[in-house]
Design a protein around this nucleic acid. Sequence first.
DNA 1: ACCCAGGCGGGCG
DNA 2: CGCCCGCATGGG
Length: 290
Amino acid sequence: MIYEQLQAAKISSPLFDLRHTFESGCPLTFHGDYDRNTNSLIYTADGRMVNVGQPGEGKTLMVVSSDVKFATHEVARRFRLADDLNKIYKRISTDDHINDAINKYKGMRVTLNDPWETTLCFIISQFNNVKRIRLIVKNLIDAYGSEIPAADGKGVLKSFPRPENLIAANAKDLMKCGTGFRAKYIQHAAEYCTNNLDLYKLNPGKYEALKETLMEINGVGDKVADCIALMGYGNLNAFPIDVHIKRSMENLYFKGKKMKMGKIHDLADDRWGNFQGYANQYLFHKERMS
DNA sequence: ACCCAGGCGGGCG
DNA sequence: CGCCCGCATGGG
């Protein structure tokens, strides 16, 4: 039995905060299962369960999985533990407002998630709220995910559905999951990413080309494409502008004046350059928590 | 009962 | 182009 091989591993976690990162509005926020009491998170990746905890002082992460080697690698990659966060802070600390966000949410990292998972999550996120996004994602996982054993050997859970799992679904099936008007987008995305576009062959570093290609998917516009570029491909040049970021940027840097998206992108580019994705996450989180 | 929520595509001037 | 509108649905 696979459960008999259950293991735990420790990895050091300098300047990492699991809770802030989970709550940051990344794909894990939408499908992960975080327990505040134990400060631990359960999620699935690549069809396997990962349980990561950050007890006590938080210097060490505890990773439990039926495949601990996979899971430790997955955790380090997902939470970008190799990023030198202090260096990034130095780069994006341009004013009091963002410094305040950094101090409040120190250790929050931009996550690096599976491109398809990120695409589906952020298609669902449009014109929606976190609670309902979680509900819809959970319904889709229950209906279309594959069963996998829990790492603790107690029961099974379901993996995040692949595009192939979803192409058989018709719009009505998807509507039953609460997807609403997004059903047709999901349907197209699943089909397009199966037959026309291999998300795993896109160049993560070519920001403009990456974004343009992603926007070929119905339901993926400027904002969602930036979310995918940032959190699905790790392109820190991406700066997703949603209503929170827009308001925040206008108030902070444009004296409260209404600005066009292009102008806001330009300012983010000038101000934070190759790390604007990190700046975006701190501004977004501060704005949403206030 | 209302009103809102991490946009998007389509239609129109 | 740029602007404006409708959109499914659960929760506050």
